[in-house]
């Protein structure tokens, strides 16, 4: 049952240098051991990366949010990981630490499959960098109960406020492919003509490859993701311009 235990385990939970959220120049830096609960309550993130705090808000349950870390959510590399779409949407970069020094990699290259990352033995995810861009973002989670639910589908959307109607939407979705995916075909089309979004919805099928599992069928995931995207984009498009 499960994986055999290694001979030694090191508890890194209390490495204070790896905990915390701060602005550094044009980016926000999050220590890999920062708890999901701290992300949920952080005012900097709330202002610049709303999709991340919204995802943290809907993450597991209160006890787990206090124990779980952003680094854990990334390295677990679950296709359904709730912090991931927001991190993809924010073009997060990761610093990975090893005896030999640091290396930096974007999250979309770091996660290579379900449960698989480029992390090698002797390496440690150190922190997460989020470039501040002034873009808006939001997160949507579909779970089968109100808390403690693994996402059937999740979605992060980021966009630019623009009175000229150029939103430059970026959409990232989890639980619909082996890793979080960008809904690129759809986003490209909708960005060229946002008012015709209904006609572009079938393009989402080109970007996703959902499976049928214990939580939902592939068919439902395809259908419901389109419904959610449609509803969320309409809400953004129809919102009064401030």
């Amino acid at each position: 049952m499960g994986k055999p235990l290694p001979q030694y385990m090191i508890d890194i939970k209390k490495l204070s240098g790896m905990i915390g959220i701060q602005i550094s120049g044009t980016e926000v830096r999050i220590g890999a051991l920062t708890s999901v609960e701290d992300i949920r309550n952080n005012q900097i993130l709330k202002r610049h990366f709303a999709s991340l705090t919204q995802a943290a808000e809907q993450f597991a349950g209160v006890q787990i949010r206090h124990r779980a870390t952003i680094g854990g959510n990334i390295c677990n590399a679950s296709p359904a990981g709730d912090l991931l779409p927001g991190l993809y949407a924010a073009d997060a970069e990761l610093t990975i630490l090893s005896k030999g020094g640091y290396r930096r990699q974007s999250i979309r290259e770091f996660i290579i499959g379900p449960g698989k990352t480029t992390l090698k033995p002797g390496e440690l995810l150190y922190n997460i960098h989020l470039p501040i861009t002034g873009r808006n973002s939001k997160f949507y989670k579909l779970g089968l109960r109100q808390s403690m639910a693994i996402s059937v589908v999740n979605l992060a959307i980021s966009w630019e406020s623009s009175s000229a109607g150029a939103f430059h939407f970026s959409l990232t979705s989890g639980s619909v492919a082996p890793t979080v995916v960008y809904l690129k075909h759809f986003a490209d089309a909708v960005n060229s003509s946002p008012r015709d979004l209904d006609t572009f919805l079938p393009l989402i099928d080109k970007d996703i490859s959902p499976i049928t599992d214990i939580r939902a069928t592939s068919d439902y995931r395809r259908k419901v993701l389109k419904n959610i995207v449609r509803h969320e984009l309409k809400t953004i498009l129809e919102a009064p311009v401030v």
Binding site: G61, R145, Q146, S147, A149, I150, R215
Partner: peptide, 27 residues
């Protein structure tokens, strides 16, 4: 609404709380 107990060829495939969804207080 949520529990949806399931078998596959007689084997329970919802053998714990992550797959057999008892409602939470929020539900």
């Amino acid at each position: 609404l949520t529990e949806n107990f399931r078998y596959d060829q007689g084997k329970v495939i919802t053998p714990g709380l992550t797959t057999y969804l008892l409602p939470t207080a929020g539900d």
